[in-house]
Design a protein around this nucleic acid. Structure first.
Lengths: 256, 256
DNA sequence: CGCGATTTGTGCACGCCTTCACAAGCGCCT
DNA sequence: AGGCGCTTGTGAAGGCGTGCACAAATCGCG
């Protein structure tokens, strides 16, 4: 790496930067770094060390440095990173320099909350339209936006330049909605419905299932409970099984 | 390989079977398998092949088989998996055989939605109490539950045997709430606030940040846009965009 | 009763991600 | 100007997860 320059960063003019293709794991952490950086900026920090930023973002400092190095590294050895510069850099890479328009489909329980969630606006997104299939809900105004019928999607999608679709419908309706979104050119979908969506190649789908998170926690609770119930030294019988026999059931009789 | 038995599966009496320590990635997929299995059961399937279940869950069949093999393998070669048996097995491993009580803290926009989300109840969780720090919200009834003041947490946590805490407060309040939850013995926390929580060892925290998901999608949108713009070999940057969506890129089309 | 079709369970290799450890670089102080 | 301490950036190693490919096992049928 010789002296590099911002690859098309905000200040720079000219050449399309050909975003470095970051590891997916890195991409998933960048927003967290960004949030931490905004906090630091608000509290008056102008520079921050990898150690400081890492702890603010809840990760390991080596990981953070490697992540940042992937996008061209703007640190100064012996000093740290310039907070403002890094914010610009990450926002650029994440494509947040343009405020993307989001269409939210499904204005039920969750949809209502999402429509009113100001975390979207503050992170560079604009909820541009609300849709629902239920005529009873069409016309309702939420947070200054009127709920439209899903059939209006094609027209509105063009008018508002919708870039991202959010599905907050019941599971049975989700696939049809996804198809409609794809049909109007949406290539990024955030799915809150508990089901798998099938979409053509080139369309990105991310899924958030609130119940799944709880179930994962439940597993760990269960595991912790079974660990505390088991005497530590007892039988090595059940743990040290290499590959052959599958599990067993010696330990019985521990009332809960 | 030899004749195995359900390691404490539903049929058995209150044994604590020493859960096999599953890979974290596997644990994260089990709930998805479970959901798919429930769907299959409702549509009358009694058995399912790894291929069928895999596609219903949106994963690769080899991965699915390996995942299931980790928890002791209940398939029949040449036939497939018994749906009902597998449901029991996964529910047992995930600790869903007991209905865990959830405390929800923060009854704002998102909290309201979560309190009314029936996906929790249907997956084996019971929202047992709602809390908020704002006196104006205390006393409100949501979905049959009365919002209590956060100071009542210690008493209620015991009464209701709270197992999991869900934080849906603004970010600045989240750490204090987490501390209070930990103080009353909660060891699993689902955090919706956009901030890092520090908790003592032994406490599990999972974070869900809706805005982060959007930012990840935004990155891919940005990347896709820069890709379609690049091969254009000079000239007009945005020639053939499908769907007529004007995905202009003010940032990366700047001439000198 | 044996054979073929089918499907599971898994050994193995590969690639990604994480973590360590350290050289290179930068600023500051003397 | 030179040296010293601090911090970044990165090579290398290790671990984890994924996917392939196949042997083992089971069922149904002739």
């Amino acid at each position: 790496m010789s002296q590099h320059r911002h690859p098309g960063a905000p200040g720079r003019a000219g050449a399309v930067p050909a975003l470095p293709d970051l590891p997916e794991a890195t991409v998933a952490r960048l927003p967290e770094y960004l949030r931490a950086l905004h906090n630091l900026a608000e509290t008056g920090h102008e520079t921050v060390s990898s150690e400081g930023l890492a702890s603010a973002a809840g990760v390991n400092s080596a990981k953070l440095r490697k992540d940042l190095s992937h996008l061209g590294s703007y640190g100064t050895r012996g000093v740290g990173y310039d907070v403002a510069l890094l914010v610009d850099q990450i926002e650029y890479v994440l494509g947040l320099t343009q405020r993307r328009a989001v269409a939210l489909v499904g204005v039920g329980n969750l949809g209502h909350a999402l429509a009113g969630y100001d975390g979207f606006a503050s992170r560079g997104f604009r909820i541009a339209a609300l849709f629902d299939a239920d005529p009873a809900r069409v016309g309702e105004e939420i947070n200054g936006l009127v709920v439209r019928h899903i059939d209006e999607l094609p027209r509105v999608a063009v008018e508002e330049a919708i870039a991202i679709g959010v599905i907050a419908t019941p599971a049975p309706a989700a696939q049809a909605v996804a198809d409609q979104l794809v049909a109007v050119g949406v290539t990024s979908i955030l799915n809150f419905a508990p089901c798998v969506l099938s979409v053509p190649e080139g369309v990105d789908v991310r899924k958030v299932d609130l119940a799944i998170e709880l179930q994962i926690l439940s597993f760990h609770e269960h595991r912790k409970a079974s660990l505390t119930a088991l005497p530590a030294t007892g039988g090595s019988a059940l743990t040290a099984l290499p590959g052959g026999l599958a599990v067993t059931d010696p330990q019985e009789a521990i009332g809960t």
